[in-house]
Amino acid sequence: MNYWLVKSEPETYGWADLVKDGKTVWDGVRNYAARNFLAEMKRGDLVLFYHSVSEKAVVGIAKVEKEAFPDPTADDPRWVSVELVPFRDFKDPVTLSQIKADQRLQQVPLIRQSRLSVMPLKPEEFEVILALGN
């Protein structure tokens, strides 16, 4: 199993929207590195859902339900999407400040490549963030 983090502005599409919808197509990604990470996602992988801009916090865990397929919002088949389903809420959101303050998380791409919207996490990084949120 692999672990990931995706970012979304809660005003555009937030965790509550995913929970209400029951699933979503994670589309519209137009960064090459993020696209490549989407293509690596496998069914059952766990994905931290991060509210960017206004909240700056991890708020839930999603699961990859459907692996990479052509992004329906793109004219070029090289852009891909995945389907995500909600898995579990975080009891307490884990803020960017908490992540930055934790020495175990200093290599997380959220800190090192802050503009990336889809990123991998090491299992131990995922576990630390999970512990902070629950």
Results as ranks from 00 to 15, higher is better:
D17G: 05
M1F: 07
V19P: 15
V19F: 13
P10F: 04
R30G: 00
R30E: 08
V47A: 14
N36S: 14
N2E: 03
K42N: 12
Y3N: 07
V29T: 08
M41P: 03
P10V: 00
V29Q: 08
D17I: 10
R30D: 02
E40V: 00
M1T: 02
D27K: 14
K42W: 06
V6T: 10
V25W: 05
Y32M: 14
K23Y: 11
L46S: 10
M41W: 09
G44T: 00
R30H: 05
L48S: 10
E9H: 05
Y3Q: 05
F49T: 04
E11Q: 12
W26R: 06
P10M: 01
V25G: 00
M1A: 15
A39W: 04
K20P: 13
L46F: 12
Y32P: 05
N31G: 08
L5D: 09
Y13N: 00
E11A: 15
F37H: 13
K23C: 05
H51E: 10
P10S: 04
N31D: 03
V25K: 07
V29P: 06
E9Q: 11
W4H: 06
K20M: 09
N36P: 02
A39H: 00
Y3W: 03
L38C: 02
G44K: 09
V6G: 04
L5F: 11
A16Q: 15
N31K: 12
E40P: 01
F49K: 06
A33L: 12
V6I: 15
L46Q: 14
G14Y: 04
N36G: 11
G22N: 12
D17E: 11
D17M: 10
V25R: 05
A39R: 13
L48T: 01
W4I: 00
F37E: 00
E11C: 01
Y3R: 08
E40H: 02
G44D: 07
F49Y: 15
G44I: 02
G22C: 08
A39K: 14
N31S: 09
N2C: 08
E40W: 03
D45S: 08
R35V: 03
A16L: 14
